[in-house]
Structures are given as structure tokens and as C-alpha cells.
Nucleic acid binder design. Structure first.
Lengths: 216, 216
DNA sequence: GTCTATACATCGATAGAC
DNA sequence: GTCTATCGATGTATAGAC
């Protein structure tokens, strides 16, 4: 029972890719049908509408994400560790399901207005609740700063994290785990150079200006 | 020079709002015409196509952004200060032109595929060049970490910064300047609490940005 | 400069033959 | 389960009267 590449699954996969690349509204049912090798009318034997396909794409994605988040939180003991796990998990899920991830972050604000997608909205609210719980517990324990609104920090890391799916293509040079470390390190420790003089790069006589050149 | 609120300008403004709220592809020329109080056919006396309106909206926005960035860089002496100025300037521009900002960050990846918008693409590349220049000069001078790819840091702060236009509504409680301070502080200093109340430890890094007391 | 009217393409969705 | 064929709505854009 390993493989049943059902037509239904083919449709969902192809539609997800098209939705991610062109946007849901700009993707036509004829394009979806073409990409799986059938005619547009045949789609309606498997789905009752185009929106139903969107529902299935995002529903499956968010269910998987919620499950993975639960596992991630179980691995962490401190808020810092939990945050680290959430970052890595998010990037792993984004790597496994890049199309659904792109749809989720590109069009959630659009789907939010349509009552049809209230299941998606509920799942998205659950995701936010998971993050906010970790962040607020970290503030309460003193691990995280208290002078930054938890909600502000959440939104900053959320947007930076999810939108990385737009530009990050996993490779051996820069694998997902390394990106996760970098994201965690920047958001927790900052981009200011640490006092430890471990940098190897010598810049005593660099050809690079200290300031960017100003143009007229 | 007092600009007359020409019909052309009305069309651009109304279209920008609609494009931001519903997406470019989902906005119809009839809706644009309705919002300015004319019929759809009349739009074509002012613009040759819907895409031409998009061009004008984003072209004017990116021109303004480029000018403001030049002023921002002139105010900074170090890479850290320049970065701080870029953050504040970006948020100010986002506050002044929220609709164009939303379009810019929501649909740049879509416009990128169409050769029609190559001017917009060039302006966007210029924006990126500005940021990268500041970041790389900071790495070269030792102000910023050398173990994070400048391009990675740029993309993280870029996405977090621009997408704040989706959720940040300037208010007296949380004005744009405070958000700019928070963004800068998180990305430069990190979210980890700087002093640990349970342990006394020599910490030479006392110089992180301090949040001024909130004004009434 | 705006209107009326419409051409022409394409959209999501449906009905029924096979 | 897929096809053919098409409906009705809606999209951008145009032509010409006023």
C-alpha cells in the first residue's frame, strides 16, 4: 500500500505548485487540468470546486504542521530550546512542502476574508498560539527580553522564517539545518559582532569601503 | 507647485488601494473605475492598460523609496547607524504609502516574471544593492558578524521589515519610531535577555540600544 | 473627458455521451 | 473516470456618440 498515486492526489500536488507559483486567483482550473493531463471538466469528478482544491492543499499542510510542532515542543525543555525547535521544524516543513508553504504565507490574508476557509483560519490561529506560548513563557522565565512585545517579536520571526521559503533552496552548501541555526542565532543573539574575537577574516587592509558609497 | 488632483492621480491612488487589498490580478478595471466615479471605458483615456496603472503605482513608489534611502545613508556614519536609518526610513515610507508598500511586497515575485515591469525590477534591485552595501561594509568593519551570510541576513530583515506593513497600524501607543527601534534592536542585539538576574557575570556588552521611556 | 455599447477572450462550472 | 460541448458570468479593451 505504499503507492496509490491517485488522480485526486495528482490534482492536489499539481494545483499546489501552480497556486504557489502564480497565486490562487491567477491559476485557472484549465491549467490545473492540463498539468495532470486531463480536461478541465474532469476535475469536477474529484472536486466540487476550485476552492475545494485549495482547502485540501492547505488543510493537509496545516494538519502536518500542527503535528510536527507538537513533536518539536516535546523535545524542548526551555523556551530557548523550544524556539530553536520551532524554527528548525518550520524550515523542515517548508522544505518538505514548499508549495503549500508558499500558498500559506502568500495568500493567508486573502483567504482570511472568505468564510469558506474557516478551517484553515482556525489551524493558522493554532500555529500562532503555539509560537506565542513559547515566546511568552520565555519572557516570563527571564530567558527573553521583556521590553519587546511578544507579539511583535513573533511577527518579525514569523515573516522572516516563512518567507525564506521564497528564496531558500536547500543544498549541501547551505542546508536547511544551517539556515535554521542562522535564523535562530540572529533572532536570539543579534547581528552585532560578539566580543569573542573568533573571526578569521583579516580586514586590516581591505578594498572595501567602511561606508557604502554615496551616489549623487 | 500645487498639483491639481488630476483624474489621473485619482485613478492611481484608488487603484493602489484596491491592488493592495485584493491583489493586482483580482482587481478589475471596473472596480477601479467605480472607486473614482467613472465608467470602466473612461479609464482608457488616461491609461493604455491595467498594467500601465500598476507601473505608475510602483514606479512612483520605488522612486520615492530610492530618494529616501539616499538621505538615510547620508545621515549615518557607521554601518550600524546606516542600518538603523534604513529600518526607520523603510517603516516611515511604509506608513506614508501603505498601499504601494503592500503591493510591492505581495506581488514582486509575480511581477518579476513579466518583462513589462522591468523598470520596477531594476528599482527593486537598486533597493537590494543599498541594503547589501550597508551590511557588507558592516561585516568588513567588524561591526557585524562574519559568520552569517550577508545575503541571508538581508533577506531575514527585509522580509520581517516589509511585512510589518501587513500588521502594523501606526498609533500613539506604538508609533512607527518605536517599531523601528524594536526591529533594529532585535536584529542587532537579539531577543535573548541581556542580563540574567540569577547570576552575576561580567558582561562587557552593556552598550545595547536602550528603549527611551514611553512618552504620553 | 465621459458616456453607451459591445467585441472578444477566458473564467468556473455543468450536462450527458461514452 | 474522462470526454465533448457549452452555459452564464465576468474579464480587458475598443469604437464612436456626445
Amino acid at each position: 500500500m505504499t503507492e496509490t498515486p491517485s488522480r485526486r492526489a495528482q490534482i492536489v500536488d499539481s494545483a499546489a505548485q501552480l497556486f504557489a507559483q502564480k497565486g490562487v486567483g491567477a491559476t485557472t482550473v484549465r491549467e490545473i487540468a492540463d498539468s495532470v493531463g486531463v480536461l478541465s471538466g474532469s476535475l469536477y469528478h474529484h472536486f466540487e470546486s476550485k476552492d475545494a482544491i485549495v482547502d485540501e492543499v492547505l488543510g493537509g499542510y496545516l494538519d502536518a504542521l500542527r503535528g510536527r510542532y507538537a513533536s518539536a515542543l516535546a523535545r524542548g525543555t526551555s523556551a530557548t530550546e523550544c524556539l530553536r525547535e520551532l524554527v528548525l521544524t518550520s524550515l523542515q516543513v517548508a522544505e518538505e512542502q514548499p508549495y503549500a508553504t508558499a500558498i500559506y504565507q502568500n495568500e493567508l490574508h486573502y483567504l482570511r476574508e472568505q468564510p469558506r476557509f474557516k478551517d484553515v483560519q482556525a489551524a493558522a490561529a493554532n500555529v500562532q498560539k503555539t509560537w506565542m506560548g513559547v515566546i511568552e513563557s520565555g519572557v516570563a522565565s527571564g530567558e527573553f527580553r521583556g521590553d519587546i512585545e511578544p507579539r511583535v517579536f513573533y511577527r518579525l520571526i514569523r515573516d522572516a522564517l516563512w518567507l525564506s521559503a521564497r528564496w531558500h533552496k536547500p543544498s549541501t552548501d547551505y542546508p536547511t539545518e544551517t539556515l535554521a541555526e542562522d535564523v535562530t542565532s540572529v533572532f536570539l543573539n543579534g547581528f552585532i559582532a560578539q566580543s569573542k574575537p573568533t573571526r578569521v577574516r583579516a580586514n586590516s587592509r581591505g578594498g572595501r569601503a567602511q561606508r557604502p558609497a554615496k551616489k549623487a
